[in-house]
Write a protein that binds this DNA or RNA. Structure first.
Length: 438
RNA sequence: GUGGCCGUAGCUCAGCUGGCGAGAGCGCCGGGUUGUGGUCCCGGAGGUCGGGGGUUCGAAGCCCCUCGGUCACCCCA
């Protein structure tokens, strides 16, 4: 009986070579950036008590209808992480590290929703959380790091939207005003509209229904309801962004999906992605969440970016794939007795830090050279009887086709002088106007 | 969760209104060159036509169900 062909669960996908090279590039660059900004790595469990995620908003879609919940063998209610902040904040509340505490992470998130390109049931996010400081300067740093991440990867047509959610005390007054306006002005817009007004009036603000736009545009804005402290904070953030030369747009109707945001919120969008998934990343301040997780009252801010969307928007896959992947490819022309020699040369090259490989499986000489070509090696190093007898090997430049004889003892030095250390060459940013293939 | 479009070889697709044993290009393997890739020539491997059921003398093509992808909505990274 033939075995059934198995496949990954709906909305979950494999990232494999050669495409995974773009991922390695994105993660490596982000890790270096975060390190430069003073953030350390945080690794938290993929499962948490479901309770942890409820704190991010019982009535948000992410929690109410998209969360993967399960009961373990002891009857505990657990959930797969739907977003990054809650786990990190729980870790902070649990371990009480000395603030300010700055960490970065790369981790998979799970949301049970209908998948689309750039929108998956398991998707990866990279991000940071900075816990323990209320300074607007920290907001600026956080936004600057998000901006640098996206621009360094080469995301084109990038836009930074910023808004302030104000402080929690100001929220009820605003919601009341908003709801009153929407009820009055949108009375004729039908059931779906009114249902959303009652359930979550903030969500009406970023709805896409064209019929609703007129009512939405005339709705009272968060910014008009900010208290003095929140207003001063928001102005300081904007001043900081201007000082750093980071272009931003005020987005009074920017509403993000979690209930925990206070004061500054922001989102990075790009026009090269379809509108349904044009948010590459986003974040904001959440000054009450640590307390809600059982920790001391502690202000905090963070952001996250979707790795799939980042790679897609930056067109990283195509750019990274063109780079040579190996410095040398060892080719065995010695016949049945050559294996030992090939193993030794290969080990020597690798020990010297060169990226090297060979073909296995007893390939013909022609097959080995073809394998060298497909492995995108810069040089082919052939071990052949005549040359080896006088202590030398044949080295061929695969790009030019030129071929020279190099003494075996000088081989490592010869190659090192002609190849860059692994990972040293960043992919060039896309040229202006270059089409990005998603 | 709702709706539109689509599922034929590893990839991109062709197969007219159901009809000789299912094709192309690219990719892969081998040979031409038992010591040389990327070009060229020759040959080869590889397919439950997404899956199941039905209609029919006969189904890749029609009908039903189902699974998956994609786009929009919802929402979000």
């Amino acid at each position: 009986m033939p075995a059934t062909r198995l496949s990954a669960p709906v909305g979950m996908h494999d990232v494999l070579p050669p495409d995974s090279a773009a991922w390695a590039e994105a993660v490596t660059r982000f890790a270096r950036l975060a390190d430069r900004y003073g953030y350390g790595l945080a690794v938290t469990p993929i499962l948490e008590h479901a309770e942890v995620f409820r704190r991010i908003g019982e009535h948000t879609d992410v929690v109410a209808k998209e969360m993967y919940e399960l009961t373990d063998r002891s009857g505990r209610r657990l959930a797969l992480r739907p977003e990054g902040t809650a786990s990190v904040v729980r870790a902070y509340a649990q371990h009480r590290p000395t603030p300010p505490w700055k960490v970065w992470y790369v981790a998979p998130n799970f949301r049970y929703e209908r998948p689309q390109r750039g929108r998956y049931r398991q998707h990866w996010q990279l991000g940071v959380e900075a816990i323990g400081a209320a300074d607007p300067e920290l907001d600026v740093e956080c936004i600057a790091l998000a901006w640098a991440t996206a621009t360094e990867m080469g995301v084109p047509a990038l836009r930074l939207l910023v808004n302030s959610m104000g402080d929690p005390e100001e929220r009820p007054g605003y919601l009341e005003a908003l709801r009153a306006h929407l009820r009055r002005a949108g009375a004729g817009l039908g059931e779906a509209f009114l249902a959303r007004v009652e359930a979550n009036p903030l969500r009406v603000l970023d709805a896409k229904d064209p019929d609703w736009q007129e009512v939405i545009e005339r709705a009272p804005q968060l910014a008009e309801h900010l208290g003095a402290a929140a207003r001063a904070h928001f102005e300081a953030v904007q001043a900081g962004l201007r000082d750093l030369g980071i272009p931003y747009e005020l987005a009074p109707r920017l509403v993000r999906g979690f209930d925990y945001y206070t004061r500054t919120t922001f989102e990075l969008q790009t026009d090269v992605l379809d509108a349904a998934q044009n948010a590459v990343g986003g974040g904001g301040r959440y000054d009450r969440l640590v307390e809600e997780m059982g920790g001391p009252a502690t202000p905090a801010i963070g952001f996250a970016m979707g790795v799939e969307r980042l790679v897609l928007a930056a067109g990283l896959t195509g750019r990274v794939a063109d780079r040579p992947r190996l410095d040398a490819f060892v080719i065995d022309a010695l016949g049945p007795d050559g294996a030992r020699e090939a193993i030794l040369v290969l080990a020597e090259l690798r020990a010297a830090g060169l990226r090297a490989d060979r073909a296995y499986g007893g390939r013909s000489l022609k097959g080995q050279w073809r394998a060298a070509d497909r492995a995108r090696a810069r040089y082919g190093v052939m071990l052949a009887p005549a040359e080896l007898a006088r202590g030398a090997v044949v080295v061929k430049d695969l790009a030019s086709g030129g071929q020279v004889e190099v003494s075996r003892s000088a081989l490592v030095g010869w190659l090192q002088a002609r190849t860059a250390p692994a990972g040293a060459a960043p992919p060039p940013p896309p040229a202006a106007g270059e089409a990005v293939d998603p």
